[in-house]
C-alpha cells in the first residue's frame, strides 16, 4: 500500500516538474538567445526574403546546396519528417535552405530540389556579399573544393547544423547533423509551447 502511495507521489512530482516548463532541449541551446542575424536574400520563386517577416513562426534554417546529393537531402528529408510529425503545428514553422553554392543553385534547380521534400520549404540565394555575411553570422563553414576529373567540377565543404530561430526572431538552438527527428520535433514543440515574450 505504502509503495503504491510512493509511486503516486513520484508520478505527481514528475508531472508537476514537467508542467513547470523544466523542459530540457535536446539540441544545443544558445544562452542568452540573441537576435538572429537577418538573411537579406531571395527565395526560389524570386520573392524577397526577410527573417523579420517571420515573427510569430519558428524558422528552421539549414545551409546546403543542390549539387549535394547525399548529406543535404538527408537533412532536408529529416526536416520534411519533422514537419509531418508536427502536424497542424507545422503551419507555425518555416524551413529555409540557404545556398552555399550560389552559382549553381539556380531558382529553377532550387524549386525542383526542394519540391521533392516539401513545397513550403524556401531556398534562399542572393548576392555574394549578403551570403558571405550570413555564413559568418551563423558560423557556417563554406569552403569551395575543386574536384579535378569529376563531372561535378567542384564541391562545397559545409557545416551540417540545423538552426532554430524562435517566434521573436531570437536564435535559440542548433542541432548537429544526424540528430534524431523526434528530438527536433520535441524541441520545436517546446518552442511553440512557450513563445518568448517580446
Amino acid at each position: 500500500m505504502q509503495r503504491w502511495l510512493l509511486r503516486f507521489v513520484v508520478l505527481i512530482a514528475a508531472l508537476a516538474l514537467s508542467g513547470c516548463g523544466a523542459y530540457e532541449f535536446r539540441g544545443t541551446v544558445l544562452e542568452p538567445p540573441n537576435p538572429a542575424p537577418e538573411l537579406p536574400l531571395n527565395d526560389q520563386f524570386g520573392n524577397e526574403f526577410r527573417l523579420s517577416n517571420y515573427r510569430g513562426k519558428v524558422v528552421l534554417a539549414f545551409f546546403g546546396f543542390t549539387h549535394c546529393p547525399d548529406i543535404c537531402p538527408t537533412a532536408l528529408g529529416d526536416l520534411k519528417r519533422v514537419m509531418e510529425k508536427l502536424g497542424k503545428d507545422a503551419e507555425k514553422v518555416q524551413v529555409v535552405f540557404v545556398s552555399v553554392d550560389p552559382e549553381r543553385d539556380t531558382p529553377d534547380l532550387m524549386q525542383r530540389y526542394l519540391a521533392a521534400f516539401n513545397p513550403t520549404f524556401l531556398g534562399l540565394n542572393g548576392d555574394r556579399a549578403a551570403l558571405e555575411k550570413a555564413y559568418k553570422d551563423y558560423g557556417v563553414t563554406v569552403i569551395r573544393r575543386d574536384l579535378p576529373g569529376s563531372g561535378l567540377g567542384y564541391t562545397i565543404d559545409h557545416s551540417g547544423y540545423i538552426y532554430a530561430i524562435d517566434q521573436a526572431g531570437n536564435w535559440r538552438l542548433l542541432w548537429a547533423h544526424g540528430t534524431p527527428v523526434d528530438d527536433i520535433v520535441s524541441d520545436v514543440q517546446a518552442l511553440l509551447r512557450n513563445p518568448p515574450r517580446s
Binding site: T74, H158, A176
Partner: peptide, 30 residues
C-alpha cells in the same frame, strides 16, 4: 560537423566482408 564530399578511385570491399554505401558515407553519384 563539416561535410566534405570527395570523389574516390575505388570503394574497397574486404575479403569475406562488406561495405555499405549509405547516406553520409560512400555512394554512387549520378
Amino acid at each position: 560537423n563539416v561535410m566534405q564530399m570527395r570523389q574516390v578511385e575505388a570503394i574497397e570491399v574486404p575479403a569475406n566482408g562488406q561495405v555499405e554505401l549509405k547516406p553520409g558515407s560512400y555512394h554512387v553519384m549520378l
